[in-house]
């Protein structure tokens, strides 16, 4: 887990509703091109501050707040976003 740079997936594995906030800054993208393109089109970009809100039930998608929105991402999708924790 100590690989650097870390991906958004490493940010938090807390379940939703538990205490504690984890914030990070997006530093880049890696992995499957179609996923990266889509993430960028949805407005995720270098330098953006992201906060992990936790995981949905059944070990479902992770919720990330960025600005005035929340995006639900699967593990594989979160993994494509590289971050630096704050």
């Amino acid at each position: 887990m100590s690989s650097s740079p870390t991906s958004l997936l490493d940010l938090s594995t807390n379940s939703l509703g538990s205490a504690g906030e984890t914030r990070a800054r997006i530093t880049g993208f890696a992995g499957e091109v179609s996923i990266v393109e889509r993430l960028q089109e949805m407005g995720m970009h270098h330098g953006m501050i992201v906060q992990c809100l936790g995981r949905t039930p059944f070990k479902g998608p992770l919720l990330y707040r960025m600005g005035a929105t929340v995006v639900a991402l699967r593990n594989g999708e979160a993994q494509c976003i590289l971050i630096q924790t704050l």
């Binding site: 939703l16 039930p57 707040r65 600005g67």
Partner: peptide
């Protein structure tokens, strides 16, 4: 900070997407 517009929604989601209560 435009993000605060989302705050009420985020509060509701703490319940509606809660690990147990959400289901």
């Amino acid at each position: 900070d435009a993000a605060k517009i989302y705050d009420p929604t985020a509060r509701i989601d703490r319940w509606l997407l809660h690990r147990f209560l959400g289901l």
